[in-house]
Amino acid sequence: MFGQYSAFIIPSYLVSAAVIAGLVIWTLLDHRARLREIRELEQRGIRRRAAAREKTDV
């Protein structure tokens, strides 16, 4: 598709896409895992100090 250089152009785009996609997926998975942890902890009745203050102060 890109003449004689396709063997270099296609891999460079593939690698870039893979690394960026990996970064995005890792970030999203990380986000999900943290949210799940927080939900679990909250279900066990644990609250952050700051959140507890918000409740009691108001």
Binding site: I20, T27, H31, R34, L35, I38, I46
Partner: peptide
Amino acid sequence: LFVTLHLMNMRNEILRRRVRSMRMMA
């Protein structure tokens, strides 16, 4: 892309700290 990823990662890092402090509270 960098700005978006950076913000998302910062959000994760903040949540990670919350989990940590909640675990310590527990």
